[in-house]
């Protein structure tokens, strides 16, 4: 028996969420005394296989020559590669969330989605009602597990090497008519919100969309951070929905979360309160965000943020 991990990659680059998922799978495998093997699907796989080996994976089943994502094909490759595994772990990314249910149906396995912890073999921690409640669930049978981004640490580098076991690329049924017609890579070089180590978010207190360009984005860029937003800001049309942090947006768990002009509604706190360090900048000293802030700056963002950007640039230049 062994545990399979889908190591999601795009154009030869391993997703950070894949390595966190590897860490989660390794935690469970160690409790069972069994091994973990990786599954890689990409155009060229050699570098990815090496990277997996570096993080302690001994065997990778790889499907090379795949130039475009196709959910049904990915699900089939993963299912075929994991017939003998006791559990399959996938990152809870858009792709992972799309593929995992198909794999679970094909294997008639027990799905456990979006885990945030592993207590024992088959016993997982999850969060429900938009992070307001944490639960412990016990799952039986063969498992298909998805792992929330930003919760598990990256696995340690052990400097090993993985053996590569090519698996055939399945052709897609002609009765399954879907194709990914186009991929547009996001503009700019800010990190992706759910993968970023630092997130700078703005709320209604910023005063208007123009202040995102003037204050939030420069602060994010000075810190090498992703940009987030509160629901009020997204609903007002100031920022795109993809930036919304909270119960009906994205759950983030960065090392540092900077909340600027965000009061801290319960549904926003649900999306970010697991950050390691929380910085809040707000004029209202009674704002609920200060209850969770490690650094609660009471002040006007129009004064504080430019000075902060300046100070960060100085420190970084030194």
């Amino acid at each position: 028996m062994s545990i399979a991990v889908f190591l999601e990659s795009y154009q030869g680059k391993m997703a950070k969420a894949s390595l966190e998922t590897l860490k989660a799978a390794t935690v469970m495998a160690e409790k069972l005394g069994i091994s973990v093997f990786g599954i890689i699907i990409d155009d060229t796989v050699d570098t990815l296989v090496q990277e997996a080996g570096k993080f302690g994976v001994a065997t990778v089943k790889s499907s090379a020559g795949v130039t475009i994502y196709h959910p049904t094909m990915y699900a089939r490759i993963i299912t075929n590669a994991t017939k003998d595994a006791s559990a399959v772990f996938l990152p809870a990314t858009v792709w992972g969330n799309e593929i995992a249910p198909m794999v679970a149906v094909k294997l008639d396995a027990t799905p456990v989605s979006d885990i945030i912890g592993i207590e024992d073999v088959g016993t997982f921690k999850r969060s429900i009602h938009g992070n307001k409640i944490h639960t412990t669930v016990k799952a039986e049978g063969n498992l298909v597990v998805t792992v929330r981004s930003g919760v598990f640490d990256l696995p340690g580098e052990v400097g090993g090497s993985a053996s590569n076991e090519p698996i055939s690329t399945e052709t897609v049924d002609s009765d399954n008519f879907i194709k990914l017609a186009e991929v547009l890579v996001a503009q700019g070089d800010r990190p992706e919100l759910t993968e970023a180590d630092i997130v700078v978010s703005g709320g209604r207190g910023t005063g208007g969309p123009e202040n995102f360009a003037q204050h939030i984005e420069p602060l994010a860029d000075a810190m090498g951070a992703a940009v987030g937003a509160s629901r009020a800001v997204v609903d007002a049309g100031w920022r795109p929905h993809g930036e919304q942090v909270g119960q009906t947006g994205k759950f983030v768990s960065p090392k540092v979360y900077v909340a600027v002009g965000i009061s801290g509604a319960i549904q926003h706190l649900a999306g970010m309160s697991t950050a390691d360090v929380i910085v809040a900048i707000n004029t209202d000293s009674e704002a609920p965000i200060f209850k969770v802030a490690d650094y609660g700056v009471v002040g006007d963002l129009n004064d504080v943020v430019p000075k902060l950007v300046e100070a960060i640039k100085q420190v970084k230049a030194a």
Binding site: T135, K138, A139, A293, G296, V298
Partner: peptide, 22 residues
């Protein structure tokens, strides 16, 4: 199927924030 049982529910650990800088 009863393949998954929720055995515990709890409020998430509260972050010990509350430090204000004025």
């Amino acid at each position: 199927r009863g393949a998954i049982t929720q055995i515990k529910a709890a409020f998430p650990p509260q972050k010990a924030g509350g430090t204000k800088i004025e």
